[in-house]
């Protein structure tokens, strides 16, 4: 049998841990909006009071066949497969930026469908494979 002192300490610890887990859960819940690194096009569509002067980040996939490069300006559409958002950007993009890949754009909303970005970050997925394998998969898909 465990000594009484040990039991007392253990139960004290269990209670403290439980309380702090619940506490942290509620803190995170209330911070939820601020923890998000970027908003999706759906978030923007559903948001009633958008501050158009504040810099925000939006993210999603670059829509297939939507990328237009005109001299200095790059235009494309970010999609989360439910809603879309038009992006305009002038500057250099990261190497990994391309169609059908993840992207995060930092800038200001002009209206609910048009966003002017002053910074583009590429977001890659969790899949890693050699180039030959990717080519094979592409051929199989055709």
């Amino acid at each position: 049998m465990l000594p009484k002192k040990v039991k007392k300490r253990a139960s004290l610890l269990a209670i403290t841990l439980l309380a702090s887990v619940i506490g942290i859960f509620f803190i995170l819940q209330s911070l939820n909006k601020n923890i998000l690194y970027f908003k999706s096009p759906t978030d923007i569509k559903n948001n009633q009071n958008i501050n158009f002067d504040k810099k925000i980040r939006v993210g999603g996939m670059v829509k297939k066949n939507s990328l237009i490069i005109k001299e200095e300006e790059i235009k494309f559409i970010i999609t989360d497969f439910n809603n879309e958002l038009n992006i305009s950007f002038s500057g250099t993009v990261p190497n990994l930026f391309s169609e059908e890949k993840g992207v995060v754009a930092e800038g200001k909303l002009q209206d609910k469908t048009f966003f002017i970005a002053d910074r583009i970050l590429a977001k890659h997925d969790e899949n890693y494979m050699p180039p030959e394998l990717k080519d094979m998969m592409k051929n199989n898909a055709k």
Partner: peptide, 22 residues
């Protein structure tokens, strides 16, 4: 949450999304 960091490639359960050669 939405993060810039990609999700885990190696999961406790299920297949990993890293090719065996890597």
């Amino acid at each position: 949450w939405n993060t810039l960091h990609q999700p885990a490639s190696i999961k406790l359960t299920g297949e990993s999304s890293i090719h065996p050669s890597m």
